[in-house]
Amino acid sequence: MKKLSEFKLGNLKKINTESISKYMCLISVTLVVLIFFVINPKFLSLYSIQNMLLEMAPLLLLAGGITFVLFTGGIDLSAGAVASCTCVLTGLYIDNIGGWIVPLMIVLGVVIGLINGFLITAFKLPSFIVTLCATSIWKCIALISSGGGSKIIPLDKRYLVNWASAPLLGIPVMLWMTLAIIGLLYFIQRNTTVSKSILAVGANARAARMAGTNTVKAQITAMTICSVCSALAGVLYAFKMKSSVPNIGDPLGLMAIAAVALGGTSLAGGKGSVLNTIAGVATIIAVTSGMNIINVHALWKDIVIGVILIIAVFINSDKTGKDVIIK
């Protein structure tokens, strides 16, 4: 009898700690919003909310893509650079090509993802080094093609991009599109064979391999999903800023990874959900916009995001495997 009661107590404890980390993202976003609202009620004004929702759209896309790479236990540091690159290309060529630039950028994203995935799986390189190199390459291409500065989309072509920022039922069209894509990602996560392999590779690559999963396909797919999302995020930035900005992506990679980590996705791979990423992104956007509203200098942003990342990663890290060597 005694054993039984002990067993139950143990179970109860586990459920508690686990549910905390599960709902952490929701708790944190409410907390952040509340704090800023108390300090300055303007934080929840219509204008401010509209603005935040608009800000959220591209970052949400980036973070949604990165979530899949983190599922595999890898990382994509190049997401921001890819976004810069497509932002520049969209801004530069939308007046010539028109709306067709969007599918073209998606194709570019696929190509980038395939290259990253190929290098990681074929040569067995760590993802962070491959994507670090990719960062330097795509950043360069962004700088080279833009000539180093921002360029505004000409006024007579603005109709091509304006619709995306316009509100539909109170929410920007851009965010509707992003939410649709997140829905698609959620479907992929829940209902496809490849996502099962992706999670298995992240949870235990060796066991996943021995069980006969196609680890190569899993890793390449994850990298590709991420790059496509990053490419689309770049397009959205061009639409939002109405110009091509070659350094737009520089801080984004870190923000996106911090957002995903806040959403409870482990950097070690194997667990998490795209839906939680939404709350993570909301938290990050609330923090950055909130700091703006309560007049904290914008220069603090890097510091705050860095600290958030460390805390979020720590909370979600697996603390049981003390014997595992971490490099």
Binding site: T193, K196, S197, A203, N204, G270
Partner: peptide, 25 residues
Amino acid sequence: VGLLSIKENIVISSLDRLSVGGIYI
């Protein structure tokens, strides 16, 4: 595959057979 559920551990080697067209499961 330690972090995953019992369910996922059982189906992991049969994904292609259980799916529709190798994609939908």
